[in-house]
Nucleic acid binder design. Structure first.
Lengths: 115, 115
DNA sequence: ACCACATGTAATAATATTATTACACATGAT
DNA sequence: ATCATGTGTAATAATATTATTACATGTGGT
């Protein structure tokens, strides 16, 4: 079962969980919306999203884990180090059938305690 | 911009966040996978997923909030009350463009503190 | 009366996520 | 030297999610 979705190449259910998790917060969707207009560097991105850099890094980490964004370091003309983030291309198609297939590999271990 | 996805009718970005949130946990994908084969009642569902009922209720609540599942109460032949959960039909198409549109309605308020 | 099995939820514990604060360091311009 | 702007991260606080335990209630069958 090959399953290419845009440039993302999601295979295991964990990959999908990472993507869903990444998309489950307004700030991260905002980040994606901004990066959809073009790459941006961290400090400016923080201003555009209206959050602090430390918090932005946390959100970016989740987006990177899901491979929805990528980053590159560059030296600006003025010689300052700048970290640019860019949005990956993707085209996710979520259906019952897909989730059913994913669920076949999911085994819930402990949870449930005394019952 | 009308945006029908399967039987789900997602409009606001909050609707999408709820769906992504609902799909961001293995147990909930497992639940969906099981319900994809047909409706099921709570106690049996708990056994199939291998979690306790209280925990299952918590997960089902998230799935209901996202409107991915629906529930109905019934009386079995033997007269016992049984709550059945069924999977909704859906066909989500997630693209940069969609997220960009959603992000236009997102305004991050406070976060960012001293910076 | 008691068991097996269904319903539901309140209270708490454990863990993870989200947010804040306070640092340190580098470059170029004034 | 100091300021403005960029980088990064450690430590902590606040909040939310996830998981557990312990209940209470109802039905039908033995």
């Amino acid at each position: 079962m090959e399953n290419f979705v845009g440039d993302l190449n999601l295979k295991r259910y964990e990959d999908y969980v990472n993507v869903f998790d990444a998309l489950s917060h307004p700030a991260r969707i905002k980040i994606i919306g901004i990066l959809a207009e073009g790459r941006q560097y961290v400090s400016e991105l923080a201003r555009l999203v209206n959050i602090s850099r430390p918090l932005l890094y946390m959100h970016l980490k989740k987006l990177e884990t899901a491979r929805l964004v990528t980053s590159t370091m560059e030296l600006s003309d003025s010689g300052k180090a700048m970290k640019f983030y860019a949005l990956e291309d993707f085209d996710l198609h979520i259906t019952r059938e897909l989730l059913k297939q994913l669920s076949e590999n999911i085994i819930i271990e402990n949870p449930g305690g005394k019952e």
